[in-house]
Design a protein around this nucleic acid. Structure first.
Lengths: 210, 210
DNA sequence: CCTACCGATCGGTAGG
DNA sequence: CCTACCGATCGGTAGG
């Protein structure tokens, strides 16, 4: 019985599978972003990779699983941004400045994923929709918490933390609509400017742009 | 020859046609909002009105014409808000406060239209897409103009008017995502709060540009 | 993982 | 403006 030693071959096989999944998702992201989910056939996704449809079905169980994966990544990247900031031992103001930068960066580096998530929510199956919207709520709760800290410390001049969180979330998330890489504004420009505006909004005080 | 006097019957016929179009759009808005454009059949739209598909085709040439009509209304209502404010003879600060209120009101009263517009852009035909996005650009240009006036007068502490316009546009437009009528917040609450936050954001102290 | 196909769905229309 | 239908599209799979 040529039983293969566990570590290596399994590792390679997994890596290959992961690579195939990753490439499939990349192809899907571009096409879903460009034409919309329903207007993109799996034949087109396969063609973009130079394979045929059953290649995709070997790694994904359905078209909607591809979509769920893409949407997950969109909000995961925003969640990572806030999770990286919350535990720091700095003031709410400093945390908010950092969050602004990292959140904007997260949105813009996953711009296509964000766009797809915003547009195609209705095409997720209920279980994935639930799971992904829990993450969204988690993000809002954490941001609301940070804002409340700033209000308590007297640094933030706001009286509805939850609504401020939604305002900030919207102002940043919406950037997926208008941002165009390689136009006038670099990602760094946008991230500095938006986070300065956020600080000005929450502190009600002058904010120098870095 | 029982020739009917022009004014009345023609008027009635037009009114009836307008009513039918209006009801059809209402039905479509609810279904497109709830299930998405592609997941809504015209049979379903007709059924919701208690008629059949050819009823719809008597008043619209295609499914996408319905969509274009809905998207047009979405941004028309925001455009009307800004057009009602720009010509006033008040300070940029006062105009911005009023705009905040009216813009939020416009977005929330046409919440479903806004959602559909954001999600279904890819399903518009090119001509309609062009026309509607011109309106969007028009809105941004006008808002940027107002912000520039405030910067010039010294009332607004911002150094990129266009980006501030995009930030404000996003913060307000995004409300279609989270606002739920008859929850904690009334439309008036939201409109007051958001416009206060906008003012806080635009009126900061002078900026030592990095 | 390819070729080839099926089965369902649905926008749009003919005919009355 | 209804009944009835067509024609195309496409997610998913059988068979190899």
């Amino acid at each position: 019985m040529a039983s293969t030693p566990k570590a290596r071959p399994a590792g390679i096989r997994d890596e290959v599978a992961a690579l195939k999944r990753a490439r499939t998702i990349e192809a899907a992201v571009e096409l879903f972003y460009e034409h919309g989910y329903e207007n993109t056939t799996l034949d087109a996704v396969a063609e973009r990779m130079g394979v045929t449809k059953p290649f995709i079905y070997a790694h994904f169980s359905s078209k909607t699983e591809l979509l769920a994966e893409i949407c997950s990544r969109a909000i995961t990247s925003s969640l990572e941004a806030i999770d990286s900031v919350i535990p720091l031992k700095s003031s709410p103001t400093d945390k908010m400045r950092l969050l602004g930068q990292r959140f904007v960066t997260a949105v813009l580096t996953s711009q296509m994923h964000m766009a797809i998530f915003s547009r195609e929510e209705k095409n997720l199956n209920p279980a994935d929709w639930e799971r992904i919207n829990d993450m969204r709520r988690d993000f809002d709760r954490k941001l609301t918490g940070l804002i409340n800290d700033g209000i308590t410390s007297g640094e933030f001049k706001l009286h509805d933390a939850r609504m401020a969180a939604l305002a900030i979330g919207g102002m940043v998330s919406w950037a997926y609509v208008w941002y165009r890489p390689k136009r006038r504004l670099t990602l760094e420009n946008v991230s500095e400017e938006l986070s300065a505006m956020i600080l000005q909004m929450v502190t009600g005080a002058p904010q120098p742009v870095a």
